[in-house]
Design a protein around this nucleic acid. Structure first.
Lengths: 192, 192
DNA sequence: CGGCGTCTTAGTCATTCGTCTAAGTCATCT
DNA sequence: AGATGACTTAGACGAATGACTAAGACGCCG
């Protein structure tokens, strides 16, 4: 029943290597360019393992999505769960948003683009979105009340999520015009 | 030198059919699923024509992007160039944004996703973005002044563009939570 | 220490891909 | 009417793909 520790480690390592490679390839060539063999080559494992471990190319990407979204939610929770004042959390989040490195965002949006054409993935994504939304709604509840904003909390959360998503998409397209101005203004407004 | 009118028409018709098929396939299967043969089949033409007319599969998608973005900009200009009061233009734009049919948006974002992995396409897209931005900046200049908004015009335009883009991406992922609330609030705020 | 079950490898298989070409078609012009 | 030249078609080509498998390697357990 119990697997040998070494073999278990080796298998886990190979699986991780493949999932890591999937993320790397999503960044480098996009989901359209991911093939079994390229995946295996990037992970440094035999290409037959993709089928043996994951059943299929597509399944591997599903697993990659699961792993990635778990981390995504964890990161969000961690960010907004700290004891810092809200404005500091916001600033941290925005620093991530316009960081030079778009690796994380590229993986995330390539997976979304993949889901646009895959009903199963789409359902999974909407679950993640609901979680993300819940985290933000909780984080924004206090400042929303304190600042006496007229916009309903629901609408505010949607505004934040969508404009963040839009910024990411624009950045992936090589567009950054106006982003700094927008974030600066929000920051100034929050500070006052 | 001059081509025969009939032949010219036939060729133009076939090219158009292929470009139309490309858009249809972008909606139905995404850019990753577009192949020479499928394209030709969907357009009802011989698959060799893709090479004969466009040189390559990729070139055809570039042409599809050009045609689509031309229409996109034209639509934007038309919308914001009318004599209606600003609030009516806004409402029309928002009605498009949350219309049931996401065909237009799907084509647009599939092309963007394609561009994420293609330097040439990315440059073309940033040009389109700049045009769009200019149209919006002009349209928002008056209401921005009249309403005495504190947010700089640049930042406002970015906010509008990015939140629109985010709404589109969420909708393509099957997510609509909060959109109606957000748009309703904006509408109410504009009306007051 | 030898059998045993799991992991790993190399390789096969049919299919599909993009590209390209040779042969055929057809409207036009002399 | 026949030649011309652009357009269209069917098909061939090698390369690459995802799926799958048989055989070997490896480490554990009795």
């Amino acid at each position: 029943m119990t697997k040998t520790p070494h073999a278990k480690d080796a298998r886990a390592a190979s699986e991780t290597a493949l999932l890591d490679a999937a993320e790397r390839l999503l960044v480098d060539v996009g989901h359209a360019g991911i093939t079994t063999r390229r995946l295996a080559e990037a992970a440094g494992v035999n290409h037959g393992l993709v089928h043996y471990y994951f059943g299929s190319n597509e399944n591997l990407l599903v697993r990659a999505l699961e792993r990635f979204t778990d981390r995504l939610i964890a990161r969000q929770r961690e960010l907004y769960a700290s004891d810092e004042p809200f404005v500091e959390k916001w600033r941290t989040a925005m620093r991530f948003l316009v960081a030079e490195d778009v690796t994380y965002e590229k993986v995330w949006l390539e997976l979304q683009a993949l889901a646009w054409n895959d009903e199963g993935l789409r359902e999974r994504l909407s679950g993640v979105n609901a979680e993300w939304r819940a985290v933000l709604a909780e984080a924004f509840a206090e400042p929303h009340r304190k600042l006496g904003l007229q916009i309903p909390l629901d609408a505010l959360v949607s505004l934040v999520i969508t404009f963040n998503l839009g910024v990411i998409v624009e950045r992936l397209g090589g567009i950054e015009t106006g982003h700094a101005e927008l974030l600066d203004w929000i920051d100034g407004w929050l500070s006052s």
